[in-house]
Every structure is written in structure tokens, then in C-alpha cells.
Nucleic acid binder design. Sequence first.
DNA 1: CTAGGGTTAG
Length: 708
Amino acid sequence: MATSLSSVIHITFLDTKTTQRRFITPSKSHRKFLVNSSKSTPDTPLTPISDNKKNSSLSDQLASLANTTLSTVPEDQPEILSKPNPTWVNPTKAKRPMLSQQKQKRSSVSYNPQLREFQQFAQRLNNCDLSNEEEFMACLEEIPTTSLSRVNVLLVLNSLRPWQKTYKFLNWIKSKDLIPMETIFYNVTMKSLRFGRQFGIIEELALQMIDNGIEMDNITYSTIISCAKKCNLFDKAVHWFEKMYKMGLMPDEVTFSVILDVYARLGKVEEVVSLFERGRATGWKPDPITFSVLGKMFGEAGDYDGIRYVLQEMKSLGVQPNLVVYNTLLEAMGKAGKPGFARSLFEEMVDSGIAPNEKTLTAVIKIYGKARWSKDALELWKRMKENGWPMDFMLYNTLLSMCADVGLLEEAETLFKDMKQSEYCKPDSWSYTAMLNIYGSEGDVVKAIKLFEEMCKLGIELNVMGCTCLIQCLGKAMEINDLVKVFNIYVDRGVKPDDRLCGCLLSIVSLSQGSKDQEKVLGCLQRANPKLVAFIQLIADEETSFETVKEEFKSIMSNAVVEVRRPFCNCLIDICRNKDLLKRAHELLYLGTLYGFYPTLHNKTQYEWCLDVRTLSVGAALTALEEWMATLAKIVKRDEALPDLLLAQTGTGAHKFAHGLNISFASHLRKLAAPFRQSEDKVGCFIATKEDLVSWVESNSPSEFVAT
DNA sequence: CTAGGGTTAG
């Protein structure tokens, strides 16, 4: 009797509710995924923090599962669902298997030397011009029909490419009716079609098989499903998986891992884990490929607990990770932001005797670069050279990007020179972008411009990130005429400015306050994001009401990607302060806080309140300080509770944007005559006691700087 | 690509 997928999934969820799960359950990671899965995009609606709801609840996720897989309860309902109370499942009862323990065996096809005749025939067909239909058909008629057998047909089907030829040959065999059609003929043809991403034709063939009573086996289904996946037709993939159960066929481990990957790519972590655990509960021992699928999924979700779950499961089942599994898990560790665990996993891999390949090293170098671990990155680089570990183009570029991330100027220049001299790893737009990034952050205008000219001369593709690096470099050096020139070349060449580039221009607008240059930069910004320029004009007009500002602010920020929202807000505050529009600056800080751009600005414990301005621009930090002092003054005056210690943190200025923040902050503290003093053992930390604060309030009239 | 599944860049 057929087991439907619907019932299988249903049972799985009942299991999780009614029985102890016997196998390690990453329920924590589920929850974490639900939080992480609400990745913000430019489309993310902007909601004030107070009524910020969870983007995706568990029931929402389960609802989608119900809609996709529970909707089709078949006529032959398994007994468990026909019982009056189907919500109870006896945990000790043997579980209904949901996948076959045995991988489908292939029929052995022996390729004998007597097949030379057909090899030559296939060769001739392959030499035919694809666009010349008649030539191909004429060639087909020359087939040596006397010795036509299934083995010969298979040989030809396997040798033909591209897919059009395989497909034509299958149809021809079928139409000639010389030999009974077999499953394997379809399977081989489908594989060829999958290379050409021809899902439509594959589906047509599948329906044909059903019509003609040709058995579809696990190889057929896994090919269909993986083709749908390759074509991003995930609904089709799920459809054929369900169909398989309905047809009474149990998936084997290959088909099962394919469908797990389908759900994983849809971000349906719950479903993947449920299917996986259900399979595990019926005695299935997953292989490394399945673990690789799970590892990638948890990496995409940034779910460290999930990755650890994969490692634990492998260990407890005695499955030794292979090279691909390690590569996937290392990549996943990077995405989950765990450089330390990535490092130990990498060492574990090398210790276990598996030699890293290009992908391994690319993943690890990238992680070290992003974590700014220059020591580890350099050490690994040295080991790569000593051990003669393989290098490829992507690894070269990743090393360059790493140099940009950790600030290794000379190493990058050597590497770049090596690439230019190499035969197969010539620098491309990625390599040039990395170099622009380095010169940009070094502030080396001359070298950056020289590189840009070289790119133009060599016809290297220009991209928006390179543009941003150049603009940042020229902006910091206040080379505004060159900046405008470079910007226009990029845009004229079809590069579309993105939010980061706009943020970069916006910060230069704030830096060029009061000079003629500001108009020039605004001109660039006008071309990139006219709404942003209109907003600057709006807030600069003192007549504009707060309500109008709020509305436009919301619209601007909703249209911007999440990563730039705080920088945008910082720059806008700076612009206002430069124009002496203090009230507006406070309004913008208020709005930024309201929409959650400054979640860590205030940290309170019973003993200590801390104002952390480390991610704020100078203007925003000063505005936040004023706001805080006014609030504290109010609290003192109202005689409300205060902690013993008050802290303000600006950081050390090690971050490239935070230069001078602590100096400006200290000077503003003096201007306000605020009672904070620089901490002796912590740079960038300002301290005041409750007593300091109270006596300061009593001897001052702080209302004079309270802007709102 | 010798009938099916997994891994590399802001």
C-alpha cells in the first residue's frame, strides 16, 4: 500500500508533539531560524520598535507546510489517520518507513568492444550541425538496425550531446518501434535534458512514461526533481516528490536528499528537520551528501546550533565528513559568524588527513578576512605556499579581498603583480575592486586613480563597489572635481548606484558643508537618488513640520537596504548639525531610535547606565549626548532613581569611521560642562558618578541645551 | 555528464 507524503509529514509533526524525540533535536535552532529567517530586505516594512511583530511565526511556517503538503490527503488513507483520534501516536510502535533503506541498484550495462560501430555512429551524429535538422535525420537513417539492441541504444543516448540530439534520438527510436522502450532510456535522456535545463520537456517525458505504462523509478524521480531544482521550479519539485508517494514508490536516500535540498533552498528548515528526523527514526543512516545539504541550509540561516547539530549527528552515527562536507560546514560557519569554530574545524580536517582544496582555502581565508584576523590569515597563506596547496583564480581574488579587509597593502600589491604575470589568473573586476578597496581605505588617491585609468584602458568591467571605493577615497581627500568625473563615468557606463554608494555620497555631502563642493556632490546624489536630495532640502527648511519629516523619513528608510539605514540617519544628523539645525538633529535621532537603528545606544543595569555611541557619527553622538544629559537632568530634578555609575562609550577610534569620535565627544562634554571624565584604564570611556551628576544639575541650568 | 543527490567571491 502506498504511503503518502502527507501522512508521513503529518505523523512527523504529531511525533514532535506527543513523544520524546529520541534523537538530538535542534529545537533551539528552529527557534533561532525563525528569528533569523526574517531577513530584512529593502522591502521590509519599517515599523516602530514598539509594535514590531515577529515576521514569521511558527504557525505561519506550519501553515505553509499544510498548504503545500497536507492539502492532498489521498483516498487510501493510512490507518493512522482513519482512527477516530489521530492525534495520538504510540511512540513504541514501529514507525512507518518513509524512505527505502536500500539505494536503488543500477542494472549492469556492460560496454563491450563490439560496440565500436555504434560509437562511430554516435560520433557522426555529434558532428552534425545542430541547426541542420535534415542532416541529422538523414544521419539517423544510417543506423545499423540489424544489431540494434538496448545496449547499443544506451551507448548512443549516453554519447549524444547537447540535449537536442539525445531527445531527437529517443523520439526516433520510439517512432521506429524497433525495440521496446525502457525506463533507462528515459532516464538517460532526462539527464541530458537536465544539462540543458529543459524541465518542460522532462515533465513531458514523465507524463509520457505514465501514459505508456513505463515504470518510473527512483532514478527517474530524482532526475526530474533535481532538474526542477536546477531551474528554480521548487513547486514542481515538491509536486513530483508527492506524486512519487502517491504512485506508491518509496524514495531511496538519493531522492530523499534531493528533496531535502529542495526544502532547504526554500528556507523551510522546519520541514527539512522533520523529514530528516522522521527518516532517522526509521533507521536511516544518512550519508555525507545529506549532511552537506543540512550544513548548507543551516549556514544560509546563520544558524550555528544547526551546524553543530549536523556535526553531532555525524559523529554519533560514525559518519566521517569528507572534503565536500568540510567545505560546506566551513562556509556555513563563516555565514553563521563563527570564525573561531571555523578555524578549529579546519584544523580538525587537516589533522584527519584530508587535504584542503581551493574551495576549502577560499572559505577559510574569506572567514579570516571578514573577522579581521590578519595573523591567522597570513599564517594560513604561508602554510598554503609551504604545502603547495592548490590555488585557483577565485582563491587569488579571495586572498586579495582578505588583504583589503585586514589592510595588507604590500601583500596585496605582490599578489596583484603575480596575477598580472600569471597565465590563467589575470586580474578581473573582482581583483581590481579589491585593490581599489585597499587604496581607498589607505587614502592613496594617486594609486587609486592610476588603477581606475588602467581599468578603463584594459576594458575591465566597472562595478558599483569599485565606484564606491573610489568615491570614498576621493571624498576623504576632498578631490571633488575628480570625484564628480569618476562618478559620471561609472553611471554613463551603466553602473547603477546602490544604497551604499548613496550613503558614501551622503557622508561626503556632510563633510563638504559650506563649500562650493557640496553642490557638486549633491549633483551626483541627485543623479543617484533624487528622493534623498529632496529629503535633505526638506529637513533643512525650518518650516517643515515634524510630521512631514517623519513621513518622508519613513519612506526614505523603507526604500533603503537595512545595512545603510543607520549610516543614512547618522549622515542626515551630521548635515543638520552642520547647518546649526539642532532641533532637527534631535528629531532625526528620535526617529532613528524609534525605527530601531540604534538598538544598543542605551544599556542599563541596576548599577550602571551606559550610553554607547560607538556606531554613531560625530554629529549623531553629540546629539545623543545632549539628549541623554537632558534626560538625566530631568531625572535628578524629579528625584527619580539613578544608578551609582554613568558611562559613555565612544570606542578607541580603531574603526575607520570612528576616527576622532572620542576627541569630539570629549570636547563636547567640556562645552556642556558635563561631569564626565575620561577613564584612565579604558580609552574611549567616560565616567561619572551619581554624585557628580547631582551636583552638576544643582549648579547648572541644563535646560539651555535641551533642544527638544 | 557513461541512468540519480552535496561545496567556492562584496
